[in-house]
Design a binder for these strands. Structure first.
Lengths: 248, 248
DNA sequence: ACTCAGCGCTTACGGTATATACAGTTGCGG
DNA sequence: CCGCAACTGTATATACCGTAAGCGCTGAGT
C-alpha cells in the first residue's frame, strides 16, 4: 500500500489512491535500483491479460491465469499492479493505440468524425471484452483514451458549435458506437437465429400482445442485413448534427 | 438438473437450456402438488434481489445475501432459480414494468418516441445496476422487455419508414439512452469534480499533446449543465430521423 | 563486504457459485 | 389409513476468486 516515494500518512489502509493508479496508466513509474531485476512490467502483464481476454473473454482473466502465463505465482503480480481493477485499466489503455490520423479521412468534420467512429468500432470488434471492461467503474483515463477524445473533439472544432455542444456531440457518437457494439456482441450469428426462432414461437403464443413487434419480425426487420447498423446510426446522428449547425 | 417435466436426455450436464430460462421469465411454471408448500417464488426472490441491488449495488447481490433476506440458506434458492444468471434476468424483468402509454404523449411519432426514451431513462435512473445487469450476456428477453420494444416500434409505424429502418432507429434510440445513462452513472457529482482536477493537472503537464481537449476543459464544456445530455442527444437523433423521413 | 530494498513464494482468509447427499414435510394412490 | 413419491430446505464440499501477511533470496549501493 502506497509504497511509493515518501512515507505517506497512510491514513486509510484501503482505498487505493488515484495518483498511484494514474502514475501506472501514464507510465510514470521510476524503476527501482536496489533489488533483483524485475522480471515483469505492468505493461507486459497487461499485454498478457489482453491476449488472454481476446482468447477466452474477460471473465476468465484472473490473477492466477495471467500469472501462470509467466510461470510465476499470482501474488507476484501485486509487485507491479495494485489490484485487478488497475490491471483492467491497463488492459484498456494497452488496447487503445494512438488514435488514427483523421485528417487522412477528408477535410470536413463529417468524414473525420465518421472515420473516428469506424476506428473505434474496429477496436470494439477486435476486443469485445472492452465493453465489459469499460463498464466497470473507475474511468481514470490514460493517455490513449484522452488522445482518442482529443481527436474527436478536434474534428468537431470547425463546426462552429459551442464547446458544450461539441462535447455533447462527442458523447453522442462515442455512446452510439459503444452501445451498438454491445448489441451486436450479444447477438452472434447462430445465437441470433435461435433467438429469433424461440421469440417468434413465443409471439405466436401471445399473438396479439405485441402487434408491432410481431409485424416487424414477420417483415424480417431483425434478420435483414441490407442496412449496416453502424453506418445507419451514424448517418442519422450526423444528419441531426448538420441540422443543428445549419440552424446556428 | 433439468428436473423439469420429462426425464430429458440430459446429454450435456452443463449448459442450461434456454427453454427453462424462458419458462421462468414468462412465468410458465406449473406449481408442484406433492411436497411441502414452497415458501418462495422466483418472482419474490427476484424482488428481494432488486431491493438489495437498489440499496447496495449489483455487485453485492449474492445468493447468500438474497437468501439471508428470507432467512433461508443459499442453496434453497436453487430450488426456484437455476443459477445466478437467470436470477439477474428475472431482476431485469421485474424492474421493467409495463411500458407507459405513449399515446398520452402526443399524436406524432416524435413526441411518442421522445416519451419512450424519457421513460426508459427513468428506469435507468431508478435502478442504476440495470446497466451492469444487461451488460452481462444472455438477453433472453421476457415479456416486459418485449413490451417496451413493441411500444417503441409501434410509435415508429406512422413514419413511413421501412421496417428495417424502423428497427435500426429503435436500436439507435435505445442504445443512446443506455449509453448516456452509463456515462452519467460513472460520473457522479463530486467524483466528476475530482476527475476534472486531476485531468487538468495532467493536461498541464502534457501541455500540447491534447490541444482540443485542453481547450474544451478550459471552456468549461465538461462542467456546464446548461445542456441536458438526454434531450440534446435525443433532439439530434430525432432530427436525423426526420431528415430521413423527408427524403423518402 | 555488508546492508537492505525489492522480488517471488507460501500460506491463509473470506468471499463467490454451485454440486451432491440427506432429512424433514406433504399429498396422492392404493 | 398407509406408504410411497415428490418436494422442501439444509449441511457439506469443491473449486474458484482477490488479496493480506510474512519469509527467504538476490544483488546493487554504500
Amino acid at each position: 500500500m502506497a509504497r511509493a516515494a515518501k512515507p505517506r500518512e497512510n491514513k486509510d489502509k484501503k482505498a487505493r489512491d488515484l495518483p498511484t493508479g494514474i502514475a501506472l496508466l501514464w507510465g510514470e513509474q521510476d524503476q527501482p535500483a536496489r533489488g533483483p531485476k524485475p522480471r515483469l512490467t505492468p505493461q507486459r502483464i497487461a499485454e498478457a491479460a489482453v491476449t488472454l481476454a481476446d482468447a477466452e473473454g474477460l471473465e476468465s482473466v484472473s490473477m492466477n491465469k495471467v500469472a501462470a502465463g509467466f510461470g510465476v505465482s499470482a501474488m507476484a503480480l501485486y509487485r507491479y499492479v495494485p489490484g485487478k481493477a488497475e490491471l483492467v485499466e491497463l488492459m484498456v489503455e494497452a488496447v487503445l493505440a494512438e488514435p488514427p490520423d483523421l485528417s487522412a479521412a477528408g477535410s470536413g468534420w463529417r468524414p473525420r468524425l465518421s472515420a473516428w467512429a469506424h476506428c473505434q468500432w474496429g477496436v470494439y470488434q477486435a476486443h469485445p471484452w472492452l465493453l465489459a471492461a469499460t463498464a466497470m467503474r473507475r474511468q481514470i483515463m490514460g493517455p490513449h483514451q484522452l488522445a482518442w477524445m482529443d481527436a474527436a473533439l478536434a474534428a468537431l472544432e470547425p463546426t462552429g458549435l459551442t464547446s458544450g455542444q461539441r462535447h455533447q456531440v462527442f458523447l453522442l457518437i462515442a455512446g452510439q458506437v459503444r452501445s451498438l457494439a454491445q448489441q451486436l456482441a450479444d447477438f452472434d450469428e447462430d445465437h441470433n437465429r435461435e433467438w429469433g426462432r424461440l421469440t417468434s414461437e413465443l409471439l405466436n403464443r401471445h399473438s396479439n400482445r405485441f402487434p408491432a413487434l410481431t409485424k416487424a419480425i414477420a417483415d424480417g426487420a431483425f434478420t435483414s442485413t441490407e442496412l449496416d447498423p453502424l453506418d445507419f446510426g451514424l448517418d442519422r446522428i450526423l444528419d441531426g448534427v448538420q441540422v443543428l449547425i445549419d440552424r446556428a
